[in-house]
């Protein structure tokens, strides 16, 4: 990857946990419809997310969040993610989720890339392939927001 400002889109989530797969579906839509960006369907990379966050590569992070109204899209700067997430263990069921990966990057003195975090709010994370209708409907908005963010970062 060169510093030619090709934007990287990183889609996170699990397609077998209902709403948790919605951001991945948005990433798949971008790939299917075509987009001038590198799209990485990263799933749940844990600390591997650090490897994908290269300071010179503008990045759009697509994820599912919990808290806001299901189906709504939340946009943050990458540097705002840690501050917006709840502290401690409640923030993720995993030893190293997105915010922990960001905190680790900060602790290691790594520079975050310029970019945006786009979170589609979900509510139902039990086993299942299909997101809830309200969340499924929000995928369109997430894709549109991702395209806007890509344009703005180019």
């Amino acid at each position: 990857m060169t510093a030619a400002a090709r934007v990287r889109v990183i889609a996170l989530g699990s397609p077998m946990a209902r709403d948790d797969g919605a951001a991945l579906r948005a990433g798949e839509r971008l790939l299917e419809e075509g987009v001038d960006a590198e799209v990485v369907l990263a799933g749940r990379p844990g600390p591997g997310l650090l490897e994908l966050l290269e300071p010179e590569v503008p990045t759009v992070l697509l994820d599912v969040v919990r808290g806001p109204a299901p189906g709504s899209v939340v946009e943050l700067g990458l540097d705002e993610v840690v501050g917006a997430s709840l502290a401690g263990g409640a923030l993720s069921s995993h030893g190293l989720g997105v915010a922990e990966a960001f905190r680790l990057a900060e602790a290691l003195g790594r520079t975050l890339p310029p970019g945006r975090f786009l979170g589609l709010a979900g509510a139902e994370f039990g086993p299942g392939e299909a997101p809830e209708p309200a969340v499924a409907a929000g995928i369109e908005e997430l894709v549109a927001a991702a395209r806007e963010a890509i344009e703005a970062l180019r």
Binding site: A17, V65, G67, L86, S92, S93
Partner: peptide, 11 residues
């Protein structure tokens, strides 16, 4: 078990 992966946000 790794069923879900989500971020709790407080805006």
């Amino acid at each position: 078990s790794c069923a879900t992966h989500f971020l709790d946000l407080r805006i």
